[in-house]
Amino acid sequence: MYETIGIWTAAIFTLAVYSFLYKENPLYRLGEHLVVGISTGYFIVVTYEQVLKPRLIDPIANDGEYILFIPALLGLLYITRFFPKIAWLSRYPMAFIMGTSMGVGFPLSMKASVLRQLEATILPLYSAGMPWQIVVGNVVLVLGTLAALIYFFFSKPHKGPFFGTGSKIGIWVIMIGFGATFGFTVMGRISLLIGRIQFLLNDWLGVIK
């Protein structure tokens, strides 16, 4: 019973959203609004069950961890945002989270996004037994990265053999990168459609396996 009603409801809403392809209509709009409402309601439930109950209410009520009142009070300050006279108090929890998370993230981002990436670009172009396509690939990777970086370097005019040629090669490399992304994007978009059609044909209509 539950499954049957569930599948039919899901199928009706799926078709309602697809009806947008023909023309905007009230059913589509209803779906659009329901998504916002249900996801927010779901958010409330999950937040209570995953955070507030096990990490705040239970430890205070059962174990007397009264120190947790500090983050709770700090969190409550967010709500002052709705009272213009004391809205500035909402900056305190924001400042706490903002400052500390930036500080925590700084050395790790430096390692993950900059140092490791630079290190990985400094590589041997050739070693014994390396297939030719890897050797060519390594050359393309190292020179291509340099060229693309030159293209993004706007402090010097893109003229002359270094900056001019470099930036020209750079934009070619970037276009290849965007092309690869585009090729994958086509695949991704079609996959999402395939998922929904599988639902309609298999779960709902049961005409395929």
Binding site: A112, S113, V140, L141, V142, G144, T145, A148, L149, G170
Partner: peptide, 27 residues
């Protein structure tokens, strides 16, 4: 694996430096 990685690494480094600069600017 190669030309795409070259482009994405250059973009990634730009983004990486941007993140670091923003973090310091906020702090």
């Amino acid at each position: 694996d190669f030309p795409n990685n070259a482009a994405k690494r250059a973009i990634g480094l730009g983004v990486g430096f941007g993140i670091l600069a923003t973090q310091l600017k906020i702090i």
